[in-house]
Write a protein that binds this DNA or RNA. Structure first.
Length: 552
RNA sequence: CGGGACGUAGCGCAGUCUGGUAGCGCACUUGCCUUGGGAGCAAGGGGUCGCCGGUUCAAGUCCGGCCGUCCCGACCA
């Protein structure tokens, strides 16, 4: 490829709307351009990197026995109604009608469609297991798209779906994908970690996220230094250790005046107590029911755990009106004493020997509150977020926290979709059985962004050769010098005919611009033809990563 | 959706407070010069100042409405 004939709109300035490195560099290097919020053009250079990533994914999926197909982007509402997700998926599902007023949506994921295919085309246990995948454009109408390709609304995703005769088979399929993902991200030169994760809107029994370790990651993960436990903090189990015992001689509950004191900090400092003595009381709307959740004042309640415990489809912190409905007071004065509601208590509450909590009356709190004596929860369990200071829930080792970018997510779906949509097969014994499913996604564009987040310097991305847009850049420094130009053309032609992905920067630009651009687009090797050729008959080969230069 | 900010040439910005016929840097075109880390000189081209309405002799600037974009939060694969 000749840069003089290529579309490579590099910029010197950072775009004003890009916050993180990968977004800035993808714009500056001319890989992508924004069309609308969360919607991007892939310019030629960006597309080349995208294709590299896709091809690695494709090779490893095929190697793992998965089969590629392609499903539509526009999906009829009927299939989504069958699974129940037409009503549950919410505003992220972009819906519209065709000229005949039939309802459609843009596909955010394809469990329904693939299950429809398989239930129609697969009849016998002899056809199982089956793993089908596609690499295709998805649309999710995100509340807040951000960071370029990191969280777009339209994005390219590899999604695979496995169908097995039984749980044991499904476990094997899951493990095969786990291994394939490990190979995929390794081949891209990424530092990553597979962590236990919540299944969210996709559902199913368990899942792992593949996290590329990077400070700019939107997810926080916890991992153990001693064993191989690693999990997303939104799901990581908390082992509370030894629980405190109620003190025997706590005086009776007493109401105290706390005018305008709503937060843990305000109340604890007003009453000269530590936050550890507060009983934090939050009201949630979960599906159509209202639930009270308690934790120690210094702990953070984990909505995901509450939601999963309740088996709810959605959950949110109750608004002022709902809080008053449940407690009779405004937010900030809620407490479990005397409350008639479903109460879930994190076990950290059991450690409080002499508690302080809201009195369910504006401007009043209770002191001397004792669990079991003054109130009792319906259940005591793990409802809080893991924090530094907690120990590993698997081995009690020390845990560390880091941030990650979720580039892949694999799920054991069980029979959630196959049962709802009647995807059955005839077993050996001639009996009809429900297929057991798994699904496996990789965000292709996000993986490119993650690779840049993890590997870059001040001048641009440092791509590993496996995903670089080109392998070699031949850079003649003076296009007017016939000798320089001729040698560069010879090298370019030679590399080209031996199958190397090579560009020649044959633009009439000065050396500085050519060097900066070569670095900015992240080409792993640069062949410089300049003065050293005319003076010593040498060219230079320079590695983008590390900057090692060799004269040849 | 709550909070905050922004919208002026392809990009980055000034001008808006205090109304008077739109400017700077980069990029682009032409010429000269230069060729080892985003050179220099000269001459050019490029703008419905986000949109609609209002106030005014006069609106990029003041007022109202709308749209778009970004950040924080909530939410989310």
């Amino acid at each position: 490829m000749r840069l003089s004939r290529y579309l490579l709109p590099t910029t010197r300035e950072n775009p004003s709307d890009a916050e993180i490195v990968s977004h800035r560099l993808m714009i500056r290097s001319g890989m992508i351009r924004k069309v609308a919020a969360g919607i991007y053009d892939y310019l030629p250079l960006g597309l080349r990197v995208l294709r590299k990533v896709e091809n690695i994914i494709r090779e490893e999926m095929n190697r793992a026995g998965a089969i590629e197909l392609l499903m539509p982007v526009v999906l009829p509402s009927e299939l989504w109604r069958e699974s129940g997700r037409w009503d549950l998926y919410g505003k992220e599902l972009l819906r519209f009608r065709d000229r005949g007023e039939r309802e459609f949506c843009l596909g955010p994921t394809h469990e329904e469609v693939i299950t429809d295919i398989v239930r129609k085309e697969v009849r016998s246990y002899r056809q199982l297991p089956l793993n089908l995948y596609q690499i295709q454009t998805k649309f999710r109408d995100e509340i807040r798209p951000r960071f370029g390709l990191m969280r777009g609304r339209e994005f390219i995703m590899k999604d695979a779906y496995s169908f097995d005769a039984d749980d044991a088979g499904a476990d094997r399929s899951y493990q095969a994908m786990f291994d394939a993902y490990t190979r995929i991200f390794s081949r891209m030169g990424l530092k990553f970690k597979a962590v236990e994760a919540d299944t969210g809107a996709i559902g199913g029994s368990s899942s792992h996220e593949f996290m590329v370790i990077a400070e700019s990651g939107e997810d926080e993960i916890v991992s153990c230094g001693k064993c191989d436990y690693a999990a997303n903090v939104e799901l990581a189990k908390v082992d509370e250790g030894t629980l405190g015992k109620a003190g025997p001689d706590i005086p009776a509950v007493q109401e105290v005046h706390t005018p305008g004191m709503r937060t843990i900090e305000e109340v604890s400092s007003y009453l000269d107590a530590t936050p550890e003595r507060m009983i934090k009381t939050l009201i949630f709307d979960a599906d159509s029911e209202k639930v009270v959740v308690l934790s120690r004042g210094d702990r953070t309640i984990n909505e995901v755990k509450v939601k999963n415990y309740l088996g709810a489809d959605w959950i949110e912190l109750a608004d002022e009106e709902s809080v008053r409905e449940v407690t009779g007071s405004s937010a900030g004065f809620a407490g479990p004493v005397g409350l008639k509601a479903k109460i879930l208590a994190d076990r950290s509450v059991l450690q409080i020997e002499n508690g302080i909590t809201g009195a369910n009356r504006d401007d009043y709190h209770y002191i001397n509150v004792l669990v079991g004596r003054d109130f009792d929860a319906d259940v005591y369990g793990d409802f809080r977020v893991i924090e530094s200071g907690d120990s590993c829930p698997a081995c009690y080792g020390n845990i560390t926290f880091s941030r990650g970018i979720e580039v892949g997510h694999i799920f054991k779906l069980g029979t959630k979709y196959s049962r709802a949509m009647n995807a059955v097969y005839l077993g050996k014994e001639g009996k009809e059985k429900v297929m057991v499913m798994g699904c496996y996604g990789i965000g292709v564009g996000r993986t490119v962004a993650a690779a840049i987040e993890q590997n870059h310097d001040d001048d641009g991305p440092v791509f590993p050769i496996s995903i670089a847009p080109f392998e070699v850049a031949v850079v003649p420094l003076n296009m007017k010098n016939e000798k320089v130009r001729g040698a560069a053309e010879t090298i370019y032609g030679g590399l080209l005919s031996s199958g190397v992905e090579v560009v020649i920067d044959d633009r009439e630009e000065r050396p500085g611009i050519k060097f900066k651009d070569a670095d900015l687009i992240g080409i792993p090797f640069r062949v410089v033809v300049g003065k050293s050729l005319t003076k010593e008959g040498k060219i230079e080969i320079r590695e983008r990563a590390g900057g090692l230069t060799t004269a040849v």
